[in-house]
Write a protein that binds this DNA or RNA. Structure first.
Lengths: 340, 340
DNA sequence: ACTCAATACATTAACGTTAATGTTATCGTT
DNA sequence: AACGATAACATTAACGTTAATGTATTGAGT
């Protein structure tokens, strides 16, 4: 039922129903100031004519695009992919479109993505900045565009953010390994998320201290490349470390792969626990104990915060910390383990 | 340098430089009909004032949003996540924004996503329809919005599409298993991509026939749920099948997980080869032989076709088939295998 | 000197929608 | 009967940009 050229507009519906464009607009938005029958008639005709609202025109006039942007590192990281999927669902449920912008963890690219979000006039941005003091973030702040930090916390409490309880997650991970007999533990991270990494280690450390693990048996490292990682793991292995806590599942898998590829068989001597519980969302065949951090809730909360900020820009910044829990998949305790 | 309220517009720049809005527009777009010095001056002032183009206004006037949509099943499937990432990169490189719309493999939702793409006035759509005769596709076709099928081919050659050489992939997979001693082979698929699945099996079958594998030793199944899958695998196991070709890596991992969880140890008796070579993009620790299908090229080609169609809607439909290759990761040949 | 063309701008209108006002008809009040 | 209130529309203008023209200035060609 589309017109020969171009799409059906309010103008066409107005002509067809004998009212003005404005009345049609109000009818289709179910506003007041319109009689029940006229409203229904207009809506019926609109449907018959196959009308779809032109959000571009609507946006220009109303100043709202009903679109948000998500700026993250890369969709090739399953963590972000899952988050993206969940956010997309919630966004669409609320009538928002989602624009995906990947920084590839490059600050320069990240700036371009913020500029893209700005020029596309999105109503708000969800961002996992790729570095601690990202210039993209400064740009975002000075632009006045509402944004919420996703899975990121920056000291200072000046921004809205949603994170999981990193400390608690680290504590649970540590205690779990200890409960399964490990007495020599290490945490490894090679993803530079300063705050989360430190908090997770603090919790991890506390669990060790609570179990009276000697300080010398609690290790932490942030190696920067594959070579350093292998070196570090070899060193820990020599020191008798058996319990390994990885910053996240993806990194855990990555280092297991490295160990396996190195051909030394070291992977058999380490029990590994990860973080994020990606296996709760994707059915991959490498099980791993992990910390479930409610990504679904994180997604919904983030959009909720963003909408609040869009609606009320002067609100005080809000930091939401979601509780975590442990999911055991029996990788906390390899057969060789010294203690029951 | 932003104005007190709202953003800098062409109007502000015009006022600041003493020319008209139109001249500013042309200057910023590097059009002709403008002197070199004026152009540079305007661009300089625009930069100083922190101008960012309002794509909404631009879109409304020009009829082009410089935004494309990708409609696929879910970002939780790494295959789509990888594709999405690659497409996003290429899109941004060409100045396009990317809107992500996930159908969750539900036809109803898919229709809503097409409607969203339409109302958001995107310039074009990349879609992996969730079913063979998707109503969303019909809607898309009748809307006149340019679109390209991604990783999907529909008989009839009426749409643009980019796919990999499914037949060749199946052939390579089959021959690889045969070369490694397997004489009793099966292909399994539980993802209802009719065309690809059948083509891959045809190639697979031909490889078997070329190697003079008896027809009775060539199997194919499309089980519909986990129970059926396990039943099928058990049956094949009893029939002496050792070489397993999975429709894609994700499904391969999924069925390996099922086998492992079933506790019968069957996974040790099957050699598995997958498709898509996801490990070429994500570093996951479950290696698997696979067919590399050049997702990067697929992404770029898809956008290229889409841009051609946007620019020249009357072009004859184009089907691009990308060559594939085999990546061996030693999962083609388990230790137990009967033949050298 | 006159025409013609090219250069470098300006002017006008429009994209489709919606916010802000106007206007008219109807009805209840006193 | 005059008034105010309300319902149900219409009118106007605007969002920021760009396409389509329009116009003044300059310079070359004959």
């Amino acid at each position: 039922m589309a017109k020969e050229k171009g799409r059906v507009t309010l103008h066409d519906i107005a002509a067809a129903t004998g009212v003005t464009v404005n009345t049609v607009s109000r009818a289709l938005k179910n506003k007041e100031d319109i009689s029940r029958e006229t409203c229904e008639r207009i809506q019926r005709v609109a449907r018959e004519m196959g009308y779809v609202r032109n959000y571009i025109a609507s946006s220009l006039r109303s100043g709202r695009t009903k679109t948000i942007a998500m700026i993250s590192g890369s969709m090739m990281n399953p963590y972000y992919a899952i988050l993206c999927d969940l956010i997309q669902r919630e966004a669409v449920r609320l009538g928002y479109g989602l624009m995906i912008l990947c920084s590839q963890d490059d600050p320069e690219t990240e700036i371009k993505m913020v500029e893209m979000a700005l020029s596309r006039q999105v109503d708000g941005v969800l961002i996992t900045p790729c570095s601690f003091e990202s210039p993209a973030l400064s740009l975002l702040r000075s632009s006045g565009l509402p944004f919420v930090l996703l899975s990121r916390y920056l000291e200072g409490d000046t921004d809205d953010c949603v994170i999981c309880d990193d400390w608690q997650g680290g504590y649970l991970a540590g205690r779990h390994l200890i409960d399964h007999g490990h007495r020599n533990l290490a945490m490894i991270s090679f993803h530079h998320v300063v705050y989360s990494s430190r908090k997770r280690f603090e919790g991890f450390q506390q669990a060790c201290l609570d179990a009276e693990i000697p300080t010398g048996n609690i290790h932490y490292a942030e190696p920067e490349n594959e070579q350093q990682i292998l070196l570090q793991l070899n060193q820990w292995h020599a020191q008798g470390v058996t319990g390994l806590f990885s910053f996240c599942d993806v990194e855990a898998w990555s280092l297991i792969t490295m160990l396996e590829n190195s051909g030394q068989g070291l992977e058999k001597d380490f029990s590994v626990i990860g973080f994020d519980n990606i296996l709760g969302y994707i059915n991959f065949p490498k099980p791993i104990c992990s910390i479930e951090c409610q990504l679904q809730k994180e997604a919904c909360t983030a959009i909720d915060l963003l909408r609040n900020r869009i609606h009320e820009p002067s609100l005080p910044p809000q930091q939401v910390i979601l509780p975590v829990s442990l999911v055991c998949r029996d990788t906390c305790c390899k057969t060789h383990s010294s203690v029951p």
